[in-house]
Design a protein around this nucleic acid. Structure first.
Lengths: 239, 239
DNA sequence: ACCTGAACACCGTTCAAGT
DNA sequence: ACCTGAACACCGTTCAAGT
């Protein structure tokens, strides 16, 4: 695990400073951590499409093919970068608060992390979340819901729904923000108003000005948590 | 709007059958509908990554660059194909049933359509849904929820949550099904069991055998609809 | 063990040219 | 109006080679 001993020679006190840091003393130059950190940077800058092996290699001062020593495919990079985003979300310190407060807090924090990296939510819906950070959060959500008395299919469905709602909302928000934003929004409004005969309710109720995404999200999350708290009709299918 | 008149010549009764369908009488060969239908086919066969302009052109017996006459970018193709999937979902015929039944039915049908085209859900989370078919469904969801008494932010949040839940669930399901399925599943189970100290609740409650995805989905949808039906605390922020 | 360099089989998109 | 063909600037990934 420790890096190889630096090049040999007589032990001269203070010699480190005099010797050229020969190739043997260079740390591996590339590590998974460095690669993943750089990948997150490239993704933040250019989105999923902007992440190419060559561009990432450039950012690391290295040839593209070198990356394949540390990583099997480009896809692995995406999975690793995504789990790094989950790693930005703190795990609940004290399990003292109510399950509802704990899960509500988790939802808010996960949303914030996903929005800090606008490429991440779209990625999170499209691949199994099995990285250590994602699993750690999954575990704490399961634990909180189990404390709430859920089990079996109810528990699994509730846990899945929690992350589905957060990730899906963040992905939608990121998708809207990505594009021209203001320009796009007014184009949509125009379109709806021009076709008010086909879309009367949309024309009357859909967005007009600046969306308050956070209030929007919180409203849905509230409704959703209220639903989870509602006792299920104890049908025979409950296992 | 009507296609150009076929090549001229003396009007001989029954002559159509005798004349070669010369180049002048060929219909435009490429139309947006044909292109979109072929794109859906290519996507069904090879997923989002499998859709390239050249491959699609091949399927249509045409040169790749010809597509650019009908479509501006590859992205347009994705938007058009996605809206075609929404077009497979029937609009509610009679607005007679309860809003809850209507929306529940819509959710089930949309899920089915998205799963018939496993590439579609992941796409639907990552881009604004502004195609005519998507908007038509959006309109009817808004209308049903407005009938239920929702308005303003409540209405928008509820409508957004409905599609977020359906699309997010379908995307997650498709992602799990895409990969090795059985192999992957048992690998995950092994992984969780090996790390049961880190993930005790997951190891105890997470999937073991075959998932019943539909029951899973329905359970979450029920909880979710129950939450929507729960009256909101009439805070001052309700506009 | 780790990185390079050349190479292969692809990409999306443009643009001038044909009919 | 619609399609072709050549061309440009990219891709992910492999593999033999270097150190």
């Amino acid at each position: 695990m420790s890096p190889k001993r630096a090049a040999s020679g007589e032990a001269v006190p203070g010699g480190v400073w005099l010797r050229e840091p020969g190739p043997a003393s260079r740390a591996p130059a590339l590590t998974r951590e460095r690669i993943v950190a750089a990948a997150v940077g490239v993704l933040d800058a250019g989105g999923t499409e902007g992440l190419s092996m060559r561009r990432l290699a450039d950012a690391l001062g290295v040839h593209a093919t070198s990356l394949y020593w540390h990583v099997a495919h480009r896809d692995d990079l995406l999975d690793l970068a995504l789990d790094a985003v989950f790693g930005e979300v703190a795990l609940p310190a004290a399990p003292a608060q109510s399950w509802r407060a704990e899960i509500g807090a988790f939802m808010g924090e996960l949303r914030a992390a996903l929005l800090r990296h606008p490429w991440s939510a779209a990625l999170a819906v499209s691949r199994p979340l099995l990285g250590p950070n994602a699993l750690a959060h999954s575990e704490s959500v399961y634990a909180a819901l189990a404390r709430a008395g859920l089990a079996g299919l109810d528990l699994r469905a509730a846990a899945a729904a929690v992350s589905t709602y957060v990730i899906g909302s963040a992905a939608a928000e990121a998708a809207w923000r990505n594009q021209g934003a203001a320009a796009a929004r007014s184009a949509v409004n125009d379109h709806l108003r021009r076709n008010a005969d086909r879309y009367p309710t949309l024309a009357a109720h859909a967005v007009t000005g600046e969306e308050d995404w956070e209030a929007h999200f919180a409203r849905g999350a509230d409704a959703f948590l209220a639903g989870l708290a509602t006792p299920r009709p104890a049908g025979p299918a409950t296992r």
